[in-house]
């Protein structure tokens, strides 16, 4: 029981990182109807920026500075490569983001080099005890920070002018445009927010084990998360991220004991299995809107 609870807390910690990434995907999707495959590169860039800046400004300032920096990079990408493609098929734009991902990652990899870069974070692998449970403090930090960010984000969408503009544009772009909402600004804002969240997620991915060239693969686990939650649901992204994290963590702890025939490292691909099962039952995810087509 104690082991199970510790496993779940580890899963929730990792899951909250996936949730941050998934939120980025969903925000961009809601604004532009495109899945941005550039998120992994932005995440990696965020982690690397933190690892360099932390040596100069200290860890916490570095996190905020790099998140803003990556948000700027995302804004630039949106302006240069995505804005000219408005009105083109979404698949084409998605593939463009795939190309951007490849390019940005090569540049970032040049900064990583061959070694593992450390974040300089205060958590490392230190453990704290929660009553009878002993868990790593970084899982708790991830959960806490994600909870705060998600609350801020939902408040932003609910109570601010720009949040309202984004919701309106997501609901119906043309009508929003007619009401005076600058849809271009909404596109830019969504990419900026996604970049910001990806950088924070990248920093958390790098805590403890550090960041290396292959770390970008972790960001792809947010894809099953958004599919499980539903592509256009912010709440779904958070739930999906946590589900994926917990499932992965459970497989990590128990699959070797109960289902060794699935092979080593099955936990790494378990999110995709969950995604397939959810899709077979609900093709639009748990909270996604069913697509209604006008014929």
């Amino acid at each position: 029981m104690k082991g199970l609870l510790e496993t779940i807390i580890r899963g929730l910690g990792n899951g909250s990182v996936y949730a941050l990434l998934a939120l980025g995907f969903v925000i961009i999707y809601k604004a532009t109807r495109v899945i941005s495959f550039a998120q992994p590169a932005l995440m990696l860039a965020g982690a690397v920026a933190v690892s360099y800046l932390a040596e100069v400004t200290g860890f916490y300032a570095a996190v905020i500075l790099s998140a803003l920096l990556i948000a700027l990079v995302a804004l630039g990408i949106e302006r240069v490569a995505i804005r000219p493609m408005v009105g083109r098929p979404v698949f084409v734009v998605a593939i463009i983001t795939l190309g951007i991902d490849v390019v940005v990652r090569v540049v970032v990899n040049a900064f990583i080099g061959r070694d593992v870069r450390q974040m300089g974070d205060p958590w490392g692998f230190t453990q704290v005890s929660l009553g009878p449970l002993v868990v790593q403090s970084r899982w708790l930090a991830m959960l806490l920070v994600t909870a705060v960010l998600v609350a801020l984000l939902f408040a932003f969408f609910r109570y601010t002018k720009y949040g309202l503009a984004m919701r309106a544009a997501a609901f119906d772009q043309e009508t929003a445009l007619a009401q005076g909402v600058s849809v271009g600004m909404v596109f830019a804002l969504s990419w900026g927010l996604a970049g910001f969240l990806a950088a924070i997620a990248g920093m958390f991915v790098g805590t403890g084990q550090g960041v290396e060239q292959l770390t970008w693969i972790i960001a792809l686990k947010a894809l099953p998360a958004i599919i499980v939650g539903g592509l256009d649901s912010l709440g779904g992204a958070v739930v999906g991220g946590l589900v994926v994290g917990v499932v992965e963590s459970l497989f990590q702890s128990y699959q070797g004991e109960f289902a060794p025939w699935l092979g080593q490292n099955f936990a790494v691909v378990s999110p995709y299995v969950v995604m397939l099962i959810v899709l077979l039952v609900r093709p639009y995810g748990l909270f996604g809107t069913r697509e209604v087509e006008r014929v």
């Binding site: 999707y29 495109v34 899945i35 979404v90 698949f91 998605a94 792809l220 894809l223 099953p224 958004i226 599919i227 592509l231 092979g263 490292n265 099955f266 790494v268 691909v269 995709y272 299995v273 995604m275 397939l276 899709l279 077979l280 093709p283 639009y284 697509e291």
Partner: peptide, 23 residues
């Protein structure tokens, strides 16, 4: 799966297929 899904949902599912296959 493809007949139930459209567009980008399908893209992500087929992407999952690559990871499962690799495993």
């Amino acid at each position: 799966l493809a007949t139930r899904l459209r567009g980008l949902y399908l893209a992500i599912v087929t992407l999952g297929l690559v990871f499962l296959g690799e495993h």
